[in-house]
């Protein structure tokens, strides 16, 4: 059907993730725009309770594939479970949470079923068949408006934090088994295990004040003004991804989608441009200060206060001012 919207939920050991709820809300909104009701799809093993939880939403149905063969995620297993059912039902949109699991298999699923691929949307506007989607480009420095052309199903993933998790419309949905051709469920990697990164992890989630530093700091040997400000404020030091990848700070200092999610009362972002992967990890902070030499940096869109300038000039001045204010 040309107006059917499916939403594929992600869970961890039967717990529906927060971004999945956000995605349910987005799918409900999309379906309403198209004049239909969204349907949820849940894959896994022992996901009955999770399905019952999802069924308390305003959905046309919750389709559940509960098989031992789907216990561990692999692209081959998930694509095998979803491909034929997407092809035969041909929904207009299949909506996914934009997670590292989704990105791992969504493009290949699109290729396998001949669907369109629209990753990482943050918003949509318009009506019926004429939708305009918003997604970040240039590492989040710009936003693009994108239109889908041609016929057939489109796979869409929804950026974390773009739609409210409490925006799900409540209701009652029937839980139905999803027919899966188990012969098509073929794991294409042998899962050996999952390992925690780090070890002696710094828990930034408990910090009241964080001074976070980005690529703009310029090197591991240029950290002194950051350390001085953190000391004056009694703050922990955090960082955006490029700082970690360059080895300027250890990985347990990373804030963002592949690091820690923090919400301190004060967050000072210095030399961080504000890629969306970083913003999702810190935008819940009570007060955000951005220091960046580029006035167009996206970090200023989430900040409460900003200073446009080189952090190597601003941070020493700020350290002085903090010391003076604290007496």
């Amino acid at each position: 059907m040309a107006n059917e919207v499916w939403v594929v939920l992600q869970h961890r050991e039967g717990q529906i993730s927060r971004i999945s709820w956000e995605t349910v809300g987005a799918a409900q909104k999309l379906a309403a725009t198209l004049g239909s009701k969204a349907e949820a799809v849940l894959l896994g093993s022992g996901v009955g309770l999770a399905a019952a939880e999802v069924a308390k939403s305003d959905l046309a149905a919750v389709h559940v594939a509960d098989h031992d063969a789907l216990r561990a995620y692999t692209p081959g297993a998930y694509i095998g479970a979803l491909a034929s059912t997407i092809q035969s039902a041909a929904p207009a949109f299949v909506v996914f949470p934009h997670t590292y699991q989704t990105v791992d298999y969504m493009a290949r699923l699109a290729q396998a079923v001949g669907a369109g691929l629209l990753p990482q949307v943050t918003a949509f506007q318009g009506e019926g068949g004429d939708l305009l989607w918003t997604r970040p480009v240039m590492s989040g420095k710009l936003q693009a408006k994108v239109r889908v052309k041609g016929e057939g199903t489109v796979l869409v993933s929804v950026q974390s934090g773009a739609f409210p998790a409490d925006g799900v419309v409540r209701g009652e949905a029937p839980v139905k088994p999803l027919e899966v051709d188990l012969a098509a469920v073929k794991p294409d990697r042998e899962i050996l295990g999952y390992e925690e990164v780090g070890g002696d992890t710094v828990d930034l989630t408990k910090a009241e004040i964080i001074v976070a530093v980005g690529r703009g700091v310029g090197g591991a040997d240029k950290m002194a003004p950051v350390e001085a400000l953190a000391k004056a404020l009694g703050a922990e030091i955090g960082a955006s991804r490029p700082v970690i990848d360059n080895g300027w700070l250890p990985r347990d200092r990373q804030i963002g989608s592949s690091g820690q999610t923090v919400a301190p009362k004060l967050y000072v972002a210095a030399g961080i441009s504000g890629a969306i992967q970083h913003l999702v990890g810190m935008k819940g902070s009570s007060v955000i200060v951005a220091i960046n030499k580029d006035p167009g940096a996206p970090i200023f869109t989430v900040a409460d206060y900003g200073i446009v300038g080189d952090l190597h000039e601003v941070l020493p001045a700020l350290t002085e001012a903090v010391r003076a204010a604290k007496g």
Partner: peptide, 20 residues
């Protein structure tokens, strides 16, 4: 391609940081 970029723009300044 199924996607067509219609426009790109710098993000609107959200609630807007007070620039000092």
């Amino acid at each position: 391609s199924r996607l067509e970029i219609v426009s790109v723009a710098f993000p609107a300044s959200g609630k807007g940081a007070q620039i000092l």
